[in-house]
Write a protein that binds this DNA or RNA. Structure first.
Lengths: 340, 340
DNA sequence: TTGTAGGCGTTATCAG
DNA sequence: CTGATAACGCCTACAA
């Protein structure tokens, strides 16, 4: 039973059909005139434009995306690849980008790299063949791979800084500086940073910022590694954090922080008395937990909107590759405070 | 400065190029043979297949999606439209569907209807022109509109039951029954249900299930309306819930429940002593709040996987429209318990 | 302003 | 098994 008859009969003529030829016939003009009437406003007389439009509406015509893409090379589709779709921090990025794309008449393709550099590269390649450009949110690929993609079609990266590639990066130093200064003022003298994936450019930047801020405000800093930047990963490093001797911990992201928070509660470690916990991102739920999670907020939505906006500009040839910076800010909540 | 020169020079020949003609030339065969060698295994001699493959690899050939879609009508793209992308309950649906699609070599298009039936319809139309089929997660459109789309190309709906359309629906009666029975056993006698959007088919089903379970286990039930199925919406209805006289509340979704939980805490209403709160979905964060949110868990990931799997089957003509059911289960946590 | 004709990259139908 | 050749639906010089 290899190939069976189509179970559902779809009207192959009436609805799906309707090409510019049908319209041309109905309106009594040449197909090329239909094409112009529908896409090049002003290059056709008002009278015929109306006739064509009416015919198109009557046949409820819908341009074939692929047929259009063939001669022009443009698909009006833009790809977005996120490092890990289960990470809530990407929700707002997705939504911001999607909204922006839709408002410009573009359709967004979404894919998940699942924290793997290789699947990311594969997906990117596939998408690039179907889209006019792609946005990489927190890419795990190497700079070289990204530059190669960018040589093909426009690429915009979020949370990464690559020379020659349009990028949207958060100014992490600001928010982290605020957090560390606040910690110092509260009496902390030694803090830890729990890092994220090794391929994460952002994790490195955040550690740099923590170290710098530590030096500036006179706090001891040390770095711990995590297996995975998830709630579960956070629970796993929690014991190490306690043993580290630090009285406060800054995390690569909120997921890790939430995991640590939870594990500390489970093991009856007082937060923030014995340990202050600070995350990064301000994801959904960060303010819902008890104690509410202190965090360095990232304007994810702005990143998505900014990246897509930059992409659209590049596509319209009105902008060269640029570097957009978005601000971060420390949001103190219940999980951080003076050491007991 | 309408049209300016392209800032970034992309190699229009070397990389993006490479058509089957180039391969044909390099391999010394006809383009049509290349096409066959690359897509119809067995319809070409092993020797030439290898030569073609080698040439393709050398030129790092990548088939043009759009050119391929033209003669075949198939794009290997599948759309997914979610009712509200900011709702975490869709995360797992998205991920499940995306994973399934990717493993079958399909690219997923994602769009957000932002809780609007009209934008949903618009987006669906646009997607349908570019994809082989679409999945509607918690659609807000009318049955008629969906059936119309389905007459054009395969449609699969999640959280909705429409005759003739492949659908994935949760068996809400099970989980809700468990929750209500548990509430009854703990001594509750009067419970409230906070409804979701009026266009939400699921909300109606959940209310039905609550009522039925109430009758079965001898509990009084009443229904309250919410403005929006969000955390904020939950905070707004919280006072009404308290005034309703019920000692337990079941919500259309976790977002509402979380909002209610938070507002009750802010107004010093004891949970669960004075009010038990139960959500629906078991979204990310539900077990992270304090008290942890009791909820009726939905296997979102399975819904996404199931929907995409069904879509792929329909596309392969091996299945007719069907109705898949996924189970729900009551997950008791700290936010519900015996009334004081 | 409008029609004609050629081409975009693939697949599919026929011959050979 | 392989080579021509005609679609697929649309766009765009070029010509009228």
């Amino acid at each position: 039973m290899a190939a069976m008859m189509n179970y559902v009969q779809r009207e192959s003529k009436s609805k799906s059909g309707a090409t510019i030829y049908d319209i041309a016939k109905l309106a009594g003009v040449n197909p090329s005139t239909v094409s112009r009437a529908l896409t090049k406003p002003g290059r056709v007389s008002e009278a015929t434009r109306e006739r064509v439009e009416a015919a198109a509406a009557q046949l409820n015509y819908r341009a074939n995306t692929h047929a259009r893409a063939l001669p022009t090379g443009r698909t009006r589709m833009l790809g977005l690849i996120v490092a890990d779709i289960t990470n809530p921090s990407f929700f707002d990025v997705i939504r911001g980008a999607e909204t922006m794309a839709a408002s410009a008449g573009y359709t967004m393709l979404l894919a998940d790299a699942a924290e793997s550099a290789t699947t990311e590269a594969t997906i990117a390649r596939r998408m690039l063949s179907a889209a006019d450009g792609i946005i990489l949110a927190s890419p795990r690929m190497s700079d070289a791979e990204i530059l190669e993609l960018n040589a093909d079609k426009p690429v915009v990266v979020i949370n990464r800084d690559i020379a020659g590639v349009t990028s949207v990066v958060p100014n992490v130093a600001k928010g982290i500086g605020e957090a560390v200064r606040s910690l110092g003022a509260e009496g902390h003298t030694s803090i830890a940073y729990v890092a994220g994936p090794r391929q994460s450019w952002m994790s490195g930047r955040r550690w740099d910022a923590v170290r710098e801020a530590g030096e500036r405000y006179g706090l001891d800093t040390r770095r711990l590694d995590s297996e995975r930047p998830t709630v579960e990963g956070g629970r796993q490093v929690a014991p190490l954090v306690v043993q580290s001797g630090a009285s406060a911990v800054l995390c690569y992201n909120d997921l890790l922080a939430l995991g640590i928070l939870r594990e500390l509660q489970a093991t009856r470690v007082d937060v923030p008395g014995r340990m202050s916990v600070i995350g990064f991102d301000d994801i959904f739920g960060a303010d819902l937990v008890t104690p509410a999670l202190s965090t360095v907020r990232l304007p994810h939505r702005d990143s998505g909107v900014g990246a897509m906006g930059a992409m659209l500009k590049v596509l319209d040839d009105v902008a060269r590759p640029a570097r957009l910076e978005v601000d971060t800010e420390f949001v103190p909540r219940g999980s951080s405070g003076a050491p007991a």
